[in-house]
Amino acid sequence: MKISSFRYLVSQGITGIWKNRMMTFASFCILLVSLLMVGLASLTAINLTRIISGIEDKSEVVVVISDNADKAAEAELEEHLKAIPNVNSIELYSKEEAWNGMLDSMTEEERAFFKYADENPLPDTYRLTVKDIELMSETTAQIETLDFVESTQSPTTFADVLISIRRIFTILATAVVAALVVVSLVIISNTTRASVFARRKEINIMKYVGATNAFIRIPFFVEGMIVGLIAALGALLMTKFAYEGVYNIFSDDSVIWVVMGMKKLYSFNELLFPVSVSYLAAGAVIGAVGTSISTGKHLKV
């Protein structure tokens, strides 16, 4: 195919947008709403996942070190702990720190009483977080077999609750997003089919004068792709406003998040790149492929 022909076909696709503006507008709206629905649902899911994982990160396992462990033994224990695959981070909390922390949290009188205690009764501990909260009990059991471990404390009941919340949430979020995707695809394919159907005579005439299928399809493809891209841009803008609106409400009371030990929501800018890429790619692909598939049916003359 000559460059001039190709340029002609692309320009046909572009002018087709305006010439068929009624159907184009319908496709545009449907695509925009679909992208918006799926996009907002996904963003909600991503943030809820982050909140849950924030809570998970806060659930620490406390490893109490035996009194008879010297510095070298403690260092060796630390190495062993680090070698456990499920251990994420590890921090030493010395008995002095623990003691000062305890004093800090006391009232004036209590402190006066304890100030003269001649010996610090608290043990050195390691505080560690795990990568996968579901393996917490196994990890704890493993730690207890190590030398110089006096005992461990882990929030296993709490972990179990979190695990089931996370499971239910993952299933729900996947189901909701999948349902929205399916509904969108059905509506989109009906709309593009209707819009191509309105032009079947045109397609028919083109076939009578000896146009190949590719020749007829390219303008439709270009047209669908551009409409998809414009719808994606529109959806992106609307998502930004909606998202930032909600984000501002929650981040106003940033204290709450800290108190509840949660991570904050993602800011829109953090998500801008992946969201833009997904919207534009989905818009372009669905627009272009949807339209050219619908065209195919009318090409068999």
Partner: peptide, 24 residues
């Protein structure tokens, strides 16, 4: 008749030549 309604007279006729990749 079966002319393409969204194309001018000129374009309707020219289309046949575009289909066969005729020089501009």
């Amino acid at each position: 008749f079966r002319l393409i309604p969204t194309m001018t007279v000129y374009e309707n006729v020219a289309f046949v030549l575009r289909v066969i990749d005729a020089p501009a």
